[in-house]
Design a protein around this nucleic acid. Sequence first.
DNA 1: ATGGTCGATCCTCGA
Length: 259
Amino acid sequence: MRLVTWNVNSIRARAERVGAWIDRQQPDVLCLQETRCSDEDFPRDLFEDRGYAVEIFGQPGRNGVCIAAREGLDFKRVSRGLPDEGVDADKRVIVATVGGLRVINVYVVNGESLDSEKYPYKLDWMARLGELLESEIRSCVEPVVCLGDFNIAPEDRDTWKPPQEGEQKILCSDKERALWRGFLDAGLHDLHRHFTDEEVYTFWDYRRLGFQKNNGWRIDHVLAALPAVGRARSVEVDREERKGKQPSDHAPVIATFEM
DNA sequence: ATGGTCGATCCTCGA
């Protein structure tokens, strides 16, 4: 089972690259973030023509998530959004049982900076995600996997430019990292760290020649609860996909499971 | 020393 998370930064702008990548990499389940597209405008054919079913949760212009899965893997119990959200809430999470896993695909709030009003929103959103995760882990019969763009570098080695001693920076702040550790305390394991101590990045800013200088961040993660950790075999970042013409600013992360 | 992008949408905002 090849399970993928990839922030594509617009599914319509990325359609050609996403299609070619699927053809090469043959994922079984593909969790995308920042589709940046209304459900009405979503290019379903991109997936369906390749033999994938797709469940979408989008909004015009920003955010938006989807899960595509090889036909036959059988989507069940699909849910959209965090519990008790209004209809106008950001479209940032979609959950489905597919391929024998409980898959929680998330696009965590970026937060912008610590003095932005988006920062407390991020902390609150993460706390509410934490409640969803605990509830899924507690109640779900299938092994739980939560993957996506978490907009968190869990440790200083997960960014090219860690904060100075005593400094608080977005994606690295004590409060963000405490919420991240809360996910781990709930029983989830960071699969990348489960397999390796390697420093790898998943995101490089388009600005300031981020990729050329390897000024990157490891902010796209695959978290797995215990039964799924036992089935996990590898986690790889497809850094090559960040190269070339019109790449997303994030690389895909591929986790494999023996099911 | 500094700034160097991209995408969607409206000519700015968000990342």
